[in-house]
Amino acid sequence: MTRVDATLMHALGDLGEALAILEGDFLVALNAPMQALLPGEPGGLAEDWALPLHGLATALSAPLGARTRCGVSGEYVAQRVALDARHVLLRLDDERERLHHLQRQLDDREGLLFTSRSLTVSEMGSVLAHELNQPIGATVNLLRGLKLRLARRHPESTDELAALDKAVQQVSYASQIIGRIREYTQSRQPKTERLDLVDLVHQSLALLDWDLQRESVRLVLRLPLTEAPVQGDAVMLQQVLINLLRNALDALRLDRPTEPVIDIELQVEAGRAELRVGDNGPGITPQTEARLFVPFSSTKPNGMGLGLSICRSLIEMHQGRLWFTRRESGGCCFHFALPLMAATSPTLEKTA
């Protein structure tokens, strides 16, 4: 191996990638990660060196630039790149770490979807309990009033009176069931812990990275340089932020601007942290704005109209506030404010 080859491989070893230099059918040099993965001696036949790793010998004859899977389960990817007229650089990527990272992302997304479904069911149960209790109460009163009148006018109508008693019992039983549903849905209280809203923003964006990349959305982040600590339930607050981000993405899909932008700003002042999620989409009508937080009211074809209602409930459970404003440049902006635990520093603006 020449001095140039040795210097090059030593430098490439610092990258952490498994690399080898080939010249024709011979192995010229290996960096440290490649030597640890597949030991070999410079000057030997590259094909003989590659045999212990299933499929690598075949990859050595693949066209330059082609990515070939190697290993028993295809856990490695081999690629050859020309360095000059004589030498070829062989790169071997271990896909297992990437796949593990991908699996963790999928698990996080599944957990988020489960939480979203659970909160939707909880909010739906609470809303239905509230809405159904009124007509059920009225029905019980009407049945009891009817029974009293019938008992005065026709005391001999024992069968009819007994039927009314049973009807009151059944309606009362339904009211008890609804009461149990309300108790169950209201039992989920925030698990209060110290949270950093800056970190929560980054975690939420990581869960939506595929959607943001697919839609080619430019992110503008204005976040504090240090922590923005609040007291709250990480799962609930992340659910709120994810919902607001997804609403912004839906708005940009509905009427896509030339350059779709989602603007996330976190300001800390007067003992509170205020997070804003804005977009440059088509905006909403005054009629839609008036019913934004009304349960079961949605402008989406398959929407249930519970997303923003749930978000407002969760923020209020944290002694906070959620509201909507119109952007002067067009689009929507949702804000939520939470009590701050400690003062923080100025903000850093960046784009993604």
Rank of each mutant, 00 (worst) to 15 (best):
H130D: 12
G24V: 03
L212E: 02
E41K: 10
C332W: 03
E289S: 13
W210H: 12
L244K: 02
P301I: 11
D209T: 07
D48G: 06
S297T: 10
D196A: 05
A251K: 08
N243C: 12
I21R: 02
E97A: 11
E156D: 12
S216K: 15
M34H: 01
D209I: 07
T7N: 08
G43V: 05
L221K: 10
E23S: 12
M124F: 09
A337S: 15
M236E: 11
E97D: 04
L221P: 02
A352W: 14
L12I: 04
A234D: 06
Q231D: 14
H87Q: 14
L148C: 04
S187M: 08
S329I: 11
F293N: 03
L27M: 07
G43A: 05
D94W: 02
I315P: 00
L164Q: 01
Q319S: 15
L245G: 00
T285K: 04
E349C: 09
N302K: 08
N247D: 13
G271D: 04
M124V: 03
S298C: 09
A206Y: 09
A273F: 06
R327H: 11
L195I: 01
W323F: 13
S118V: 08
L12F: 03
Q134F: 14
L244M: 10
L150E: 03
A248L: 02
Q103T: 14
E259A: 15
L119H: 01
E131I: 11
M236G: 03
F336W: 04
I284Y: 03
E259C: 10
Q319F: 10
S175A: 15
L249D: 00
A163L: 12
R256D: 04
A78I: 02
S73D: 14
Q35G: 10
Y173S: 14
R109Q: 13
E41A: 10
R80K: 09
G16C: 04
A342L: 03
